[in-house]
Design a protein around this nucleic acid. Structure first.
Lengths: 180, 180
DNA sequence: CAAAACGCGGACTTATAATATCCGCGTATG
DNA sequence: CATACGCGGATATTATAAGTCCGCGTTTTG
């Protein structure tokens, strides 16, 4: 239905919380703060680490932080890391199937890029060009310009209090305590 | 996997055969000529008629022809007619879900267009701009410049002979003759 | 006028991808 | 050594795309 789906949306929103935040933030914190599916987000972030956009710290108090300054991370880089460089169009080389060629399409018919594929490639290029011109810093700025000052303090407090409140969260695993 | 799928590809290739062809061509002819699924193509073309890009003639010897000169039909118009104005991205308004808002996001958080949605909209606009700049005539020209002259005659002959050869085609319906 | 060849559109099936969850492992912290 | 992480494989659940089938009305043609 759309080229870029919920994975990308979740990830982009999550990354905005990491801008200018030197402390690692866990995927669970990011998910619960934004009320998005935790297990799903946790599955997306390793892709960003492999792409070199995030740095992960393991173990207790671990989490993610940006690998580079936010103004050096383009939306295009994020999208490609999450969705895997999706193309606008998959050419199936219909031009060579014409029955007049009888299974043996001549060279003139299949050489170069298919005209239909060509216009799609140009459109894709225009799209990627636009995505490459916006950075996480740009996005974060547009959000912060709207928010009132007290909000950032509240957000910081929420992160600080996480280690305690997680204990009472709805998402709880039962190691070997589930027996009546 | 891609924003535009096989429907669009089949349709665009089919339309190229209608450029400068005043005689109506049936969907079955278009499908068999290009070796693409006939029932599927037959399902796409009515969309183009409703969009005003094609004119259909019913009954025996019926078929489709372009409603306008090929240089007035953009690839964008075709794609929108077939796929229904797909967007690059579906914003789910994640920004309003932040738990700090406690179910009641303040106005500053949800007013205007979401920054992430915004960059996607700009990219989509750039893509559509590019698709709108290419017409069916442009595509047809790039194909014809490659093909040798005799090819067009062969194609014309194939269409002319269709009414007879269809009789022996593999795709044959059995009205009430299927009894052992 | 009846058969044939069309377009039309709904119902249906299948294939594939997107979304989401679960579980066990290794690792760092305190 | 218990806890809270990241990691990754396996699995379930939808949703969408791709493809098929069938019955109806329309138009030509013999």
């Amino acid at each position: 239905m759309a080229l870029y789906g919920a994975s990308t949306e979740y990830v982009l929103h999550s990354l905005l919380w990491l801008v200018d935040n030197p402390e690692p933030v866990s995927s669970l914190d990011l998910a619960e703060l934004q009320d998005i599916p935790a297990a799903f987000v946790a599955k997306q972030l390793p892709k960003l680490e492999k792409a070199g956009l995030l740095i992960a710290s393991e173990g207790l108090r671990g989490g993610y932080r940006l690998a580079n300054p936010a103004d050096e991370i383009s939306v295009l880089a994020v999208v490609d890391a999450v969705e895997g460089r999706k193309s606008l169009f998959n050419c199936q080389e219909i031009r060579g199937r014409c029955v007049l060629f009888d299974q043996q399409p001549p060279r003139w018919a299949t050489q170069g890029v298919c005209g239909i594929h060509g216009v799609m490639l140009r459109a894709e290029q225009a799209m990627r060009q636009e995505l490459s011109q916006t950075s996480l810093a740009d996005l974060a700025r547009s959000v912060r310009d709207k928010a009132p000052s007290p909000f950032f303090g509240e957000a910081q407090s929420w992160f600080d209090g996480r280690v305690q409140t997680r204990r009472t969260s709805k998402v709880r695993q039962r190691k070997r305590s589930d027996v009546s």
